[in-house]
Design a protein around this nucleic acid. Sequence first.
DNA 1: TGGCCAACTGTACCGGCGGTACAGTACGTT
DNA 2: AACGTACTGTACCGCCGGTACAGTTGGCCA
Lengths: 213, 213
Amino acid sequence: MGAANEAERRKGADTRERLLDAAESAVLEKGFAATSIEELIAAVGITKSGFFYHFPDKGALAKALLERYLEREEELFDDLFARARDLDDDPLHAFLIGLKLMAEMMSDLPAGHPGCLVASYCYQENLFNRDVRDLNREGVLRWRRRFRSYLDEIAARYPPKVDVDLDAVADMFSALADGGIILAKTVRDRDVLPGQLMLYRTFVRTVFSGTDR
Amino acid sequence: MGAANEAERRKGADTRERLLDAAESAVLEKGFAATSIEELIAAVGITKSGFFYHFPDKGALAKALLERYLEREEELFDDLFARARDLDDDPLHAFLIGLKLMAEMMSDLPAGHPGCLVASYCYQENLFNRDVRDLNREGVLRWRRRFRSYLDEIAARYPPKVDVDLDAVADMFSALADGGIILAKTVRDRDVLPGQLMLYRTFVRTVFSGTDR
DNA sequence: TGGCCAACTGTACCGGCGGTACAGTACGTT
DNA sequence: AACGTACTGTACCGCCGGTACAGTTGGCCA
């Protein structure tokens, strides 16, 4: 059907990706409103008309950007915790390994974590329509469900030593990650984010195993 | 010297405060770049000339806004932890009371927490000059020093049961607060932020007293 | 080889906004 | 009556986001 030109299609998809790349870093550095279409097309090397060929308006760019970001995060989490589970079949130990891998990954980013789009969008919510805001919300709720399922599995084998709401403990990861990114960026110290993730790790360990180390 | 009109001066200071009020809520809702001078003067009921009488340019508004915000936060923390200390002279118990007061205060905000300017500015850092970025950094470092001093006092009486970096535990409050605000805003659930603060409280309790309740 | 289609370019235009410049004014204090 | 504060009014500039739409390039297939 339609079929048409494969090489052209690849080229188009590539340009679109490069627009999203340029947009992502710009948005994380100065926000969506201050990210001009002109700078994006200059970075990619196309004209303004070219931009509007790929996105009907700036809002469509915002949506596509967030969708791609959330998908990539999901893949990263899937991958990382699957690897951790391969290393240890015990749910608690696997989770602790996963958190350590995450902290190491953050620590290895040479320029520090570039930022979280969810947090960026959150502080500019009125710029976006309902679609995008709901997308953001669903993204966070998916993180909650993911961590909650890990924690449920852990709690089944290790009854919590402390009285905590597991949804809150699940959210705590996201909160510490987003908060840690903000602190790391503003004090300009790459080590803050991995430090916070490792603190989450010791919290989870003490909640379920009650022991240090 | 100069002395001059007292009533006029009060009126001018009042208009300036109202400009800052309008700017603060607007910035937290859609970011600094998307906050137009025109909407601020419309909200306050003055003309554009009036705005530029109070601030030489938009950058000066950004700086004044952040300065006021940081001062108010400082006062709030001073006040709240002083009250907590009045209720219990033990540093650990006082700190735990302070955290509970904080959580209750956040819980009582009818529309949820309006947002943290530090976080908002962090995700728009390239819009601001060095002055403002350094101000933001100093603000966060002041929070760290404050909580670190509480924790040092606690650690002197209650040796930590878990091996943790006290600077990281101090930062953890800020990270959970900022992260909690983001989660609460994006999932649109006021209870998330107080929940995270209470989790920080149980973490601190288990680190220093090692017991649940 | 001719036509199709994806992926653009070129040109023109609009309105909003940040910012500048500066003259004028209302009003309380001295 | 004079002075300073806190503005208003008017006019203007340049940039940028956004729209509209017609034209062009270059692989691919029949």
